[in-house]
Design a protein around this nucleic acid. Structure first.
Lengths: 179, 179
DNA sequence: TTCAGCATGTAATATGTTACATGATTAG
DNA sequence: CTAATCATGTAACATATTACATGCTGAA
């Protein structure tokens, strides 16, 4: 029951079809909660049965029919209930850390680490571009905008951390290699 | 197929029963790949069928029989295959970031953030204690020990990042509250 | 004509969580 | 006498991934 809430949050911002949501999950909200279109369609169907969202079919010409979902009052109530709930500690699951720990193939680890570093740098740039564009004056932010900015800050801080970790690994491995 | 590898890595360090593994997963390797005993038993059974591990039943008096698993040659081969494989980018899934973004209940977010900060501080202390105890001289490390230390470094850097993010949130929210 | 985008899903499989079940020993 | 530790699991449920399936439009 967690993708459910991510979708509901996205729907409070604007009503959307499963397809639209899938695209949003490829970008903004999906940075913190990735989801595939298949999964999104399933959850939308379940939430409609629960009465949290309401779908209306729109016929379109030239392209497939579109089912647009909007959040209902019951959905809003569910979001409020969830928002007040304590969120326990989040488990991190890192395949890469397990691989490091196994330390079976130092060359592969080096290559992986370089890739990861590049991916972090790239994503950091995206985040920073978003920040500059959408939140040029953070001190003026309020409400949901403040929340979105703080979430983005989490992404930025996280990418910095990822880069720092990669650099530690590279220093340790490259340093040893050349000796 | 990822808990599989975490278990195999743990078994290369020392043969163990499901119960033993469950305890290890509560501590060391479980920081990067949490798992419950139920899940571990299931995976062990599956891996035995696949021939990656071999279990031997030991009768004990005064306590339940114990099934000790050791990694087989096929298991080692599988680890090697996995180690050489590229690991793609890891998805982070943060319920908390979604909650921030929803920004429904600032008081609850504040309370959550304080809890999270405390949990990060606590875990950081554990990691740093481990580091001081098991890796007092990092420059002398080699092989699997070097890998384990680097994984631990990831944990440490990650907790620092977590604390920094919480501090940003607290500054933003508390600053605004008092105005 | 080929590929990307729009738009919906089903089916099979894999993985993980929660609840339930049993039963002995030892320390407080 | 109560709780924790040792030791194994099953069953039901929830969630996520991968593969498959369809079909139209518009741009290169």
């Amino acid at each position: 029951m967690a993708l459910d809430h991510a979708i509901l949050v996205s729907l409070t911002e604007r009503a959307a079809s499963g397809y639209d949501l899938a695209r949003r999950f490829d970008a903004s909200i999906g940075f913190f909660w990735p989801a595939s279109h298949q999964q999104i369609y399933k959850v939308l169907a379940r939430m409609q049965e629960a009465g949290w969202v309401e779908g209306t079919l729109q016929e379109q010409d030239g392209r497939p029919d579109k089912r647009t979902y909007a959040i209902t009052a019951a959905g809003e109530a569910e979001l409020d209930r969830w928002a007040a709930e304590r969120s326990g500690r989040e488990a991190l699951r890192s395949d890469f850390a397990v691989k490091l720990r196994a330390f079976r193939d130092p060359e592969a680890i080096l290559a992986d680490t370089r890739d990861r570093r590049a991916a972090h740098v790239e994503r950091l740039a995206e985040y920073e571009a978003s920040e500059a564009r959408f939140y040029p004056d953070p001190s003026a932010l309020e409400g949901a905008d403040l929340g979105s900015w703080l979430a983005l800050r989490g992404g930025i801080v996280g990418e910095h951390q990822g880069i720092a970790w990669c650099d530690e690994i590279l220093t340790a491995l490259e340093g040893r290699e050349s000796r």
